[in-house]
Design a protein around this nucleic acid. Structure first.
Lengths: 344, 344
DNA sequence: GCCAGTTCTGGAATCGATTTCACGCATGGC
DNA sequence: GCCATGCGTGAAATCGATTCCAGAACTGGC
C-alpha cells in the first residue's frame, strides 16, 4: 500500500506538500497537479489509522443501540448512516442488548478507538455513564432515550403525547377497561408513555367516562411492566387476560411487545377490533396481519438522521448550547369502525 | 487520558516495560505489580489507534451485509458479534444496500482503517472485487453468498438442496402449478435456489406428475426474478396471479419477498393453504400471521458465528487451505394438512 | 572466582500521517 | 534601492503504542 512518502518521492516533493494537497493547504497548481497524478498512479489513499492518531480524532462514529433485531432501531440506524455519508464518516453499529455491562464496554472502545463521536440509545436512564466521554470532550448525542444527569444533545419523540393520543383513541373507540403494557421502569420511554396513558385515564375516571376496576388502584391495576421484547409482551398480555375482570383493550408501549400481545390474544381466541390494541411504534409486517391496526407512528429514520446531523455539527466544532430536539409522533389510524366485542 | 508513558513514569519504569506487562513479556513480578497498580490508578487503557498503527492491524472486523433491515442479516450479525467477543475484536456493521458502489467504498474503508479482517455477504457474485484486500493479506470470509473468482474462505447454506426440498414439499402437498419468485440473477443464492426448484420440477414434468403450462418453457414460464425486497415480491406475485393460467403455489426465495407475496395474495383474496406458499428463510413474525406456513429454515445465527470463527482463525495466522463450510437448511413443517383450494 | 548463558531492562526506532517552524524568494510600497 | 509582507516549501516534531537491540544483572557450573 502506497504511503504519503511514496507519493512524495514519486512527485519529487516533500510529504508535507502531499498532505497539503489533500487537506487544502497552499500549494502551487503545477506541483499540486504532479502530486495528484502520482497519487493516482500509486493508488494512494491515506492511512486512516495514522490520520486518527495524529489528529486525535477518528473518522468513525459509534451508534449504540439496545436491540439490533428491532426494526425500529434498524430504521434509526439507516437514518444515521445516510446522514453520516454527508461528511464521509463511517458508522460502527454496537448492539448493547439492553445490557449495562456490554454498553459500558462499547463506550470504552469508543474512547480507545478515538471515535469522532457517539450516538447512544441508553440501556438505562440512570446507570448509563457518559461522563468519561464528556471528560475527553467526545461529542455525544442521546437518541430515543434520555439519560438522566447527562449534559448531551438529545433527539427524542414526544412519548407522553403519543401515550395520550393512543389512550384517547381507544376511549373514543368505545373501549372502557384499557390496560397498558409498558417497558422496563429504567428507561425514559417506558415511563413517559405510561405517564401519557395515566393522565388520560385519570381524567376519564374523574369524568366517569370509565369505570374503576373492582380492586386495586385504577391507575396501576391494569399496568404491566415488561422488557420491550416479544416474549415479554406475550406473558404480560396473558397475565392481563387471566384477571378476574380482564381489560377490553390494551395500549402497548412498543412494537415487539405488541407482536407478543397479539400472539397471546390469538391464543385466547381474541383479536382486534373485538379487543382493542394500540401499539406505540409500527408493528413489523402488520399490514399482513391486521391491516386495521392503529399505531402511534414513530419517525425512526428521522430520529437517526437528526441525531447524526447534530453530532456532526458538534464534531465540526459548534459551541451552541445543548439542544433537545423532540420529533412528533402521529396516530396512524387504520381502524375499521368496529368497536369492542361486547358493546358498551 | 493516561498514556503508556504516564504509567511508566508513575511506576518508575520505561514504557517498554509497561508494554511488556500488558503483552506477556518477561518482567519481574514486583515491577509488574507496580505497573499494574499505576495503570489502575490512572485508569489507563491502551490507545487502540496507536496500537493499530504500530501493529499494522486493527482490532475491528468489518461485516458487510446487503440489507440491515432484513432479520436474516441481523441474526447473522448477532452471530458474528457473539463469536467476535471471544477474542475481543469489535464488529463494524456496514450496510451495502445491495449497491456495488457502496460496497466498494466500504471495502476501501476496511483497508484504510486497517481492519483485522472482513466478512462479506457480497452484493454481486461477479462484480464484487476482493482482490485489493487479498493483495494486502487481509483475511476475508464470504458468508451466505459466494463471490466468483475470489479465493477466500466461505460459509454458505445448501441452497440448491433447500430449493429442492421446498419444491418437493409443495408437490407432496398436492400443488401442481408451482411458480418460483427468486432474487437478482447476479447473486449466487438466487441462482442456486432456483436451480433446486428447476431440478425437481424437471423431474416431475418428465414423470408426468405435473402438467406443463400451456405456453412457454415450463421451466421459466412461472419463474420471476425480483430484488429480495418486500415490494419486489409483491409485484412478482401480482404478475403471476395475472397470468392466463396462474400458478396454484409458489416457492419464494427469501423471507422479505414472501411477505410481499402474501400481501399480493391477500389482495387477490387468496391465502395459504388454498394457495401454496413456501418461503426460503423464516418469515419474520410469521407465527402471528400464518402459523401454518412451512419454511426452509436458515441457520442465520450460525452462519455468522461460523464465519467469524473462521475469520479469527485466519487473523490468528492459520495457513490451512481455503475452506468452504456448507450449513444445512431444514424444512420447518408447520403446515395444516389442507391441500390446494381446487382439489385434485 | 571466573566465564558462559539467561533474564530483565531502557533507549531508540518505527508505523504514517499532520503540523509547526524557519527559511528562501517574490512582491509591492515608499 | 530598501524593507516589510506574505506565500510556498521541506525538515523535523508529534501522536501513543510496540519491538529491536545492546547492555546490565543475575544464575549456575566448574
Amino acid at each position: 500500500m502506497a504511503t504519503i512518502t511514496d507519493v512524495a518521492r514519486a512527485a519529487g516533493v516533500s510529504p508535507a506538500t502531499v498532505s497539503r494537497v489533500f487537506n487544502g493547504g497552499r500549494v502551487t497548481p503545477e506541483r499540486a497537479e504532479r502530486v495528484r497524478r502520482a497519487a493516482a498512479d500509486l493508488g494512494f489513499s491515506p492511512n486512516r489509522v495514522a490520520q486518527s492518531l495524529r489528529k486525535q480524532r477518528g473518522s468513525v462514529i459509534g451508534l449504540l443501540i439496545p436491540d439490533i433485531e428491532n426494526p425500529f432501531f434498524t430504521a434509526l440506524a439507516r437514518g444515521v448512516e445516510d446522514a453520516a455519508q454527508q461528511t464521509n464518516l463511517s458508522v460502527v453499529l454496537c448492539n448493547t442488548d439492553e445490557d449495562i455491562e456490554k454498553e459500558r464496554r462499547y463506550l470504552g472502545i469508543a474512547l480507545a478507538e478515538q471515535m469522532a463521536g457517539v450516538i447512544v440509545a441508553a440501556a438505562s436512564r440512570d446507570r448509563t455513564d457518559l461522563s468519561a466521554l464528556a471528560a475527553r470532550g467526545m461529542p455525544v448525542v442521546a437518541v430515543d432515550r434520555r439519560p438522566r444527569n447527562a449534559s448531551v444533545d438529545a433527539v427524542l419523540v414526544d412519548n407522553q403525547h403519543g401515550g395520550e393520543a393512543a389512550t384517547e383513541h381507544l376511549l373514543a373507540g368505545g373501549y372502557r377497561r384499557i390496560a397498558c403494557i409498558t417497558g422496563p421502569a429504567a428507561t425514559s420511554t417506558s415511563e413517559e408513555r405510561l405517564a401519557g396513558y395515566r393522565d388520560v385515564l385519570r381524567t376519564a375516571l374523574h369524568d366517569g367516562r370509565v369505570p374503576a376496576p373492582p380492586t386495586g388502584d385504577p391507575l396501576t391495576a391494569w399496568v404491566r411492566h415488561a422488557d420491550f421484547k416479544v416474549e415479554g409482551g406475550r406473558a404480560a398480555m396473558a397475565d392481563l387476560l387471566a384477571m378476574d375482570t380482564p381489560p377490553d383493550a390494551v395500549f402497548v408501549a412498543n412494537n415487539l411487545m405488541t407482536v407478543g400481545a397479539l400472539t397471546a390474544l390469538r391464543e385466547a381466541g381474541q383479536a382486534p377490533p373485538g379487543f382493542g390494541v394500540l401499539s406505540f411504534g409500527d408493528v413489523p409486517w402488520a399490514a399482513l396481519v391486521h391491516p386495521s391496526l392503529t399505531t402511534v407512528q414513530q419517525p425512526s429514520y428521522d430520529l437517526g438522521f437528526t441525531a447524526a446531523t447534530l453530532l456532526q455539527e458538534r464534531i465540526g466544532g459548534t459551541h451552541t448550547p445543548l439542544r433537545t430536539v423532540v420529533l412528533r409522533t402521529s396516530l396512524k389510524i387504520r381502524a375499521s369502525t368496529a368497536g369492542p366485542a361486547d358493546g358498551t
